[in-house]
Simulated scan of single mutants.
Amino acid sequence: MQSKVDCGLVLQYVRKIQLLAMTADFGVDVKPEIEAIVNDACKYFLNTAGDDACTNIRILKNELTYQANLARKTRHEYQNALNYAIALVGLSEV
């Protein structure tokens, strides 16, 4: 059986969330958009990746966590936005 782990697609979702998180630094409420992206990603993986859906979702969460840890401590809103996405992805893992 062929693996359906798609790191490229995971990174596309991460980049979308990062771009939104950058706008959070300017006071924009990005939570609804982040929710939509996380929901889209998780639904896509669950519908197309079969047994590898959890792996893709875990990779998404790990990459977001990595990016949040790289962010400067002065970029609170950026980090908050990424942490919000991480929390949403964590709910999808249940």
Rank of each mutant, 00 (worst) to 15 (best):
42 C>W: 10
31 K>I: 05
42 C>V: 15
61 K>S: 12
19 L>M: 09
35 E>C: 07
38 V>S: 02
60 L>T: 07
54 C>D: 11
73 K>G: 00
74 T>V: 02
53 A>K: 04
67 Q>Y: 11
75 R>N: 14
43 K>L: 12
35 E>R: 13
39 N>I: 00
66 Y>S: 14
43 K>F: 04
41 A>C: 12
69 N>H: 14
66 Y>V: 04
67 Q>I: 12
52 D>I: 05
41 A>E: 13
21 A>K: 07
32 P>N: 09
61 K>Q: 15
58 R>W: 06
51 D>N: 08
62 N>L: 11
69 N>D: 15
65 T>K: 13
62 N>C: 02
46 L>C: 06
23 T>Y: 09
73 K>H: 04
24 A>R: 03
50 G>S: 07
71 A>T: 12
55 T>K: 14
46 L>Q: 14
23 T>G: 00
54 C>T: 10
54 C>L: 12
20 L>N: 10
47 N>L: 06
34 I>T: 02
53 A>V: 02
73 K>S: 13
73 K>P: 00
47 N>H: 05
75 R>V: 00
50 G>L: 07
28 V>Q: 08
24 A>C: 03
73 K>A: 10
24 A>F: 01
68 A>Q: 14
69 N>Y: 11
52 D>C: 06
54 C>I: 09
28 V>G: 01
60 L>R: 05
41 A>S: 14
21 A>V: 03
18 Q>I: 06
20 L>R: 08
49 A>V: 04
22 M>W: 08
69 N>A: 15
65 T>F: 02
26 F>R: 12
17 I>G: 03
46 L>N: 15
66 Y>F: 14
54 C>A: 01
72 R>C: 06
40 D>T: 15
48 T>D: 03
32 P>G: 07
22 M>Y: 10
36 A>F: 00
66 Y>Q: 12
76 H>S: 11
38 V>E: 02
66 Y>T: 12
72 R>F: 01
75 R>K: 13
40 D>M: 08
41 A>H: 11
45 F>W: 15
22 M>F: 07
29 D>T: 03
73 K>M: 04
19 L>T: 13
42 C>M: 09
17 I>M: 04
17 I>Y: 07
53 A>R: 02
44 Y>K: 13
21 A>Y: 04
40 D>V: 00
39 N>V: 00
49 A>Q: 11
76 H>E: 11
55 T>N: 05
45 F>M: 10
61 K>L: 06
16 K>S: 13
70 L>E: 15
36 A>C: 00
54 C>Y: 09
39 N>G: 06
23 T>V: 07
53 A>L: 01
28 V>A: 05
75 R>I: 00
49 A>T: 01
53 A>W: 02
62 N>I: 01
28 V>T: 07
60 L>H: 06
42 C>R: 08
18 Q>C: 05
59 I>Q: 13
49 A>E: 04
76 H>M: 09
21 A>T: 05
58 R>N: 15
21 A>N: 08
49 A>K: 10
46 L>H: 10
19 L>D: 15
41 A>V: 11
33 E>K: 05
37 I>S: 01
31 K>Y: 06
64 L>Y: 09
27 G>Y: 02
16 K>F: 04
63 E>C: 08
66 Y>R: 14
53 A>E: 03
39 N>A: 12
25 D>C: 08
31 K>G: 02
20 L>Q: 09
